[in-house]
Simulated scan of single mutants.
Amino acid sequence: MIAPGHSRAVLSAGANVGDPMAMLRLVPGGLADAGADIRVVDVSQVYATAPWGGVEQDDFLNITLIVEGERSPVDWLRLGAELETRAHRTREVRWGPRTLDVDVINVADADGVVRSDDPELTLPHPRAAQRAFVLVPWLEIEPDAELVTPDGPRRVAELATALPQAEQDGVRRIGPL
């Protein structure tokens, strides 16, 4: 049960420029340092994946995190953006190479799963169900996870196995962060 004023968020982080492992390590530490109210519940192992979106670039390293705190969904988005700024992220090419990308995938509060059509933050993340690099690490740390899709709530395990086999096979576990 989530206390009023608190939320629980699923975040996905990826990096493929510079030292991607070091960039990913910034995320849990940076979130924990962002406020005494924030608790990093769990962090997946690191997974390597081919880039998504058709831009020629190096493979990404990815993690998924579950965090809780006295934060709104937009607060989680802003914290992710602050971490990207610390990693010197630039936004030059959509789905292009980046030092760090932190996406808010799902947020729940005392009223349940937060849904938002706001262009700044659409929740649940509109493409999460299509991305093995989000679903596979999420399953590692929350095997019973559900994601609200346009077809209603679906188990993340079902969404992951419904993806093309090549995409599932393209998510390779590297090891701990």
Results as ranks from 00 to 15, higher is better:
A129S: 14
L177N: 11
G175V: 01
G30C: 04
V17N: 00
G170C: 10
L159N: 00
F133H: 13
I63S: 04
A157G: 00
T161G: 10
L135P: 04
Y47I: 01
W76P: 03
I174P: 06
A166S: 14
R25P: 00
E84K: 00
A22W: 07
D75S: 04
R155E: 09
V171R: 00
T149I: 06
T64E: 10
V41S: 11
V102D: 03
V102R: 01
G96L: 08
G170A: 12
E140H: 06
I38A: 07
A48N: 11
L83V: 03
V46A: 14
E142F: 09
G29C: 09
A50Y: 10
I105A: 02
I174D: 08
G170W: 07
V17P: 01
V10F: 06
D58I: 07
D19S: 10
R39D: 12
R78N: 01
V113F: 12
W95S: 08
L26V: 08
D19N: 10
L79W: 11
Q168T: 09
V171T: 01
P137V: 02
S7R: 01
P153T: 05
G18A: 06
Q168R: 15
T49E: 05
P51M: 13
L139H: 05
R89Q: 04
L65F: 10
R115K: 11
V46G: 10
A132H: 03
V148I: 12
R172T: 15
E92I: 12
T122L: 12
F133P: 13
V171A: 01
L135G: 04
R127D: 15
V148M: 08
S44E: 02
D37L: 13
G54C: 08
P51L: 13
D37M: 11
